[in-house]
Simulated scan of single mutants.
Amino acid sequence: MLLSWLVSARMKSRFSEYSQIPIPVTGREVAEQMLKDNHITDVKVISTPGHLTDHYNPANKTVNLSESVYNSNSIAAAAVAAHEVGHAVQHAQAYHWLGLRSALVPIVQLSSNLVGMVLMIGIVLLAMGG
């Protein structure tokens, strides 16, 4: 859990740092151009609420860019947008490891939720002297 927190903190710090370097295009424009360059016409680029909630959804073929990436014209936004489009390119090329990654997403999400609950139960039991 500590490692996950450290990685997340480092990523947010880097994103913040590189968000200060402007470029002439937005994250949305980078994503759309990359899809066009790779001849992918059935994937939509959409804005999603939150900060760094970016992801590619192979089920509905959308590149979901957080508001801080979609509308931003920074190096950080371009990098995040390019990363997410990379998953769409992998999907279009039937990259076999993408299937494994997609299958693991629900398991990782469930595990993440369970860890939080188990931690809370442990804290409560410890506080009760058990």
Rank of each mutant, 00 (worst) to 15 (best):
L35Y: 00
G122S: 11
S111N: 14
A76R: 02
A94V: 11
A31W: 05
I46D: 01
L65S: 05
M11Q: 12
L52N: 05
S4V: 15
T41I: 15
T48N: 07
A59F: 13
T26M: 06
M1W: 04
S102Y: 01
L126G: 12
L100K: 13
A31C: 05
V7E: 06
R101P: 00
S112R: 14
Q33T: 15
K36T: 14
L2M: 10
T48P: 07
V25T: 13
E29P: 10
A9I: 14
L3K: 11
Y70S: 08
V80H: 01
V43W: 01
P58S: 13
V118I: 15
L110A: 12
L35I: 10
P49H: 08
W5S: 13
V118P: 01
I40G: 03
L2P: 00
H87A: 05
Y95K: 12
S66L: 04
V45C: 03
V124I: 15
Y70P: 05
V69A: 05
G122D: 04
L35K: 01
N57H: 04
V43Q: 02
T53H: 07
V30A: 09
N71Y: 11
G116A: 11
N38R: 14
G130P: 04
S8K: 11
Q90E: 05
V30I: 15
H83C: 12
V43L: 04
L98W: 00
Q90A: 07
A88L: 07
L126S: 13
S74G: 08
W97E: 02
R101E: 08
